[in-house]
Simulated scan of single mutants.
Amino acid sequence: MGDTPESQAQPVRADTEEQRSERSYKAAAHNPSNTAEGREHAAEKLAELHEQRTGESLDPKKEAEIGEKKAAQR
C-alpha cells in the first residue's frame, strides 16, 4: 500500500463521544468496502467534526480518495 495517500487527520484518541465519532467517520471514509457515496458522506462528516474539534480544515475529497485507492488495490 505504498502509493495510498496518508490521511490529513492525525490519529485521534477515543476518549470522548466526539472523538469516537470522528474515528468512525475516518474509518468509513477510508474503507474500500464502502460505496463511493458512503465514503464521500463519511469524509464530509469527518471534515466537519475535525474542524469543530481542532479548528483545522480537511479536504473531504482527499479523505474519500484514500478509500478509492484502497479499493483499486484489491
Rank of each mutant, 00 (worst) to 15 (best):
E48L: 05
K26M: 13
I66A: 08
S21G: 03
G38S: 08
N31P: 04
T54R: 03
S21Y: 06
K26P: 00
K69C: 07
R53M: 12
N34L: 08
T35H: 06
R13G: 11
I66G: 03
A47N: 06
A43V: 04
E37Y: 07
G67K: 05
R13P: 02
S21R: 15
Q19Y: 01
G55M: 08
T35R: 00
D59K: 08
G67S: 09
A47L: 04
H30K: 01
E68P: 00
E68W: 04
E68A: 12
G55E: 02
A14Q: 15
R23D: 05
A27P: 05
A14M: 15
A42R: 01
N34C: 00
S33D: 13
D15P: 11
E65Q: 13
K70A: 11
A42E: 00
I66S: 06
K69P: 00
E68T: 12
P11I: 07
S57Y: 01
E40V: 07
R20Y: 07
E18R: 14
A47Y: 09
T35G: 05
S24A: 15
E40T: 12
K26V: 09
S33T: 10
P11F: 10
D59M: 07
S21I: 00
A27V: 09
E44C: 00
K69Y: 08
A71Y: 11
K62Q: 14
K62R: 14
G38K: 02
A36Q: 10
P32E: 12
R53V: 03
S57L: 02
S21P: 00
D59P: 01
G55S: 05
Y25A: 10
K26H: 13
E44D: 14
S33L: 10
R23L: 14
E51H: 12
